[in-house]
Each structure stands twice: as structure tokens, then as C-alpha cells.
Design a protein around this nucleic acid. Structure first.
Length: 292
DNA sequence: AGCCAGGCATCAG
DNA sequence: CTGATGCATGGC
């Protein structure tokens, strides 16, 4: 949640727990997730709030959260496999850092589009605004209202002006055209899930406003394609410094390097490099920051 | 005031 | 192929 690399807007915190509300198997449930006592063998404590919560609901929420936080990823194996690499410094500092996988791939696609040339804070605000302006409204447990993400049908018909009122800026047109392509069947997100990484990426990049970075974000966070390693401005700065003595590299070269080196774990490696790099950056003096 | 933020499209060499 | 520029918007 704090790395900024989420598949959806990050969750609010209360008393040390991250919480969200959603419709799970037709039931409105609020779940408060407490950080796991063991980073490497996660068994987070979860507090459920809702009416007539039965065993079946509990099981559904459990499976939902296991998927969302990718609790089956074998982090100790990943750490062990790359224990001798430079990246292993980040394993110690951020042990337990995990990828997310979107529960709604369509929302993840729109998040990825909104994130381009924007800050984490801003695209999170934008997506929350899209939920509140276009999404179905529910009265959650305890009487609080919440909005889930709108359907592609809704955003395909949305007016540019209303989308822009959520500070989407020039991305409004991209959101609408991607939504239209999903509605008329030219783009099938679940079919992309079955396709090989390269093919899926190529197809995504044919959409307006979707380039290599946005495509990789969606493949990784929306579909769980862990070979995808989004190369943003940070990764583009970090990888040449850490691995190539500061040599000049294109973004494509950086992406290829990560995929070759880390294979099916390229996306996870990217997460650690990104978070480690950004945390280090925060500790620099303003003068040192300028040098980058 | 100007530059940057999880880029992309377009155009000039 | 590589580099430069505009694009909306808000924060610093």
C-alpha cells in the first residue's frame, strides 16, 4: 500500500489496519486487514464487518484477499534465488513487500492509463473521483456509502467533460476509447490473460494512450503477468546505476534486462528496485536530488 | 516561476 | 534510429 505500486487506489488506514469495502459473492463486506506478523509467511489477521456473515462468506473473502495480495507468491524462494544479487539489499529492508493483483482488471487498465505522466497521489485521487462520479453506489456496513468502479459500458458513454472534472486531463479520450473497444469486443482483457506476454503487450500498445509502460502496468497489476516489468522514470534511472555503472540505456533495454535476469519474477524485482530507489531518494538532500 | 510526476504521440534530423 | 516537444493538472 505504501510503495505506491498498487493495482487500484491505496486503501485507507485505521488503527494499524488497511480497510476496504466490496461486494463479494453478492454480499457487502468491509474487511480490515492487519499487517502479518511474519513478512515471509503471511497470515494477516482480518476483521470482517457486515450483516449475516456466514462460513461461505468468510471463505470467499479469504480467497479474495489471498488473490489480491498474492499471498501464494513464495517470497523466501525469490529471496533465496537472487540472494547474491545487488537487489538483495532491498530484500532485507523491505522483507514482505508484495505485488498486488487487481480484483477488477478493467479498473486496473484505467488506473494504468491515469497513472501516466502523473504522480501516485494524483492518479489515486482521479480514480477515486471516477468511482464516485460514475460507479454504482452502495450503502456499506455501518451505513457508510461507497462506490465501486464503473463498467466499461458506463465509461464508454461518459462525456469527456465529466471525466475531465476528475482531473484526467488529456487522458479522458484514452479512457473512453479503451472502454469502447472493450464494449464492442475488439479488446478482450481476459483473452489477453491467456496470451503470451509479448503478444498481449503488442496488442495493448495498439490502443491510443497505451505505450510500453502502461501496457506492462496492466499486464502485471491487472492480469498478474509477473514477467512484465514496467519501466518508469524511476526504474530507468535506477537500473543503469545499480547494474551497469551508470551507462546510458533505453527504457526498452532496461525492460529486456529485467526480464532476462529475473524471468517470471521480473515484475517482483521491479517492485523491490522501485521501492528501494524511491526510499533512498527521499533520504537525499535537495542538492543531491538535483544531481539526478 | 518553473519543473516534475509510475508516458505517449508526433515530428524533425 | 535518437532527440525534442506538447499535452492537463497539481504539488513543491
Amino acid at each position: 500500500m505504501q510503495s505506491g505500486q498498487t493495482s487500484e487506489p491505496y486503501w485507507p488506514q485505521i488503527d494499524g489496519a488497511y480497510w476496504d469495502t466490496d461486494l463479494i459473492n453478492g454480499k457487502l463486506v468491509r474487511y480490515e486487514v492487519y499487517p502479518s506478523p511474519s513478512a515471509e509467511e503471511p497470515c494477516p489477521h482480518v476483521h470482517l464487518i457486515g450483516s449475516d456473515i456466514d462460513e461461505e462468506t468468510i471463505e470467499s473473502v479469504k480467497n479474495y484477499l489471498i488473490e489480491l495480495f498474492r499471498l501464494r507468491d513464495d517470497l523466501p524462494l525469490f529471496y533465496e534465488k537472487f540472494r547474491t544479487e545487488k537487489i538483495s539489499r532491498a530484500f532485507k529492508d523491505y522483507s514482505g513487500l508484495r505485488l498486488m493483483k487487481a480484483s477488477d482488471p478493467y479498473e486496473s487498465l484505467i488506473c494504468s492509463i491515469c497513472s501516466q505522466h502523473s504522480s501516485v497521489e494524483q492518479w489515486n485521487r482521479t480514480v477515486r473521483c471516477i468511482r464516485a462520479s460514475f460507479g454504482p453506489r452502495f450503502i456499506g456496513p455501518g451505513g457508510s456509502t461507497f462506490f465501486s468502479f464503473p463498467s466499461s459500458e458506463t465509461l464508454a458513454k461518459a462525456s469527456t467533460a465529466k471525466l475531465e472534472s476528475c482531473q484526467t486531463g488529456y487522458r479522458a479520450g484514452y479512457i473512453i476509447s479503451a472502454s469502447k473497444m472493450i464494449v464492442d469486443g475488439r479488446l478482450d482483457l481476459m483473452r489477453l490473460k491467456q496470451a503470451p506476454y509479448e503478444d498481449a503487450k503488442k496488442e495493448l500498445m495498439e490502443l491510443p494512450g497505451i505505450g510500453p509502460k502502461v501496457a506492462d502496468c496492466f499486464l502485471l497489476y491487472g492480469l498478474g503477468q509477473t514477467r512484465a516489468a514496467p519501466v518508469d522514470i524511476w526504474i530507468h534511472r535506477i537500473v543503469p546505476r545499480v547494474y551497469f555503472g551508470g551507462a546510458k540505456m533505453t527504457k526498452e533495454e532496461v525492460g529486456k534486462f529485467l526480464r532476462n535476469r529475473y524471468g517470471e519474477w521480473a515484475g517482483l524485482a521491479q517492485l523491490y528496485l522501485y521501492h528501494y530507489g524511491r526510499m533512498r531518494f527521499k533520504t537525499l538532500t535537495p542538492a543531491a536530488k538535483k544531481l539526478l
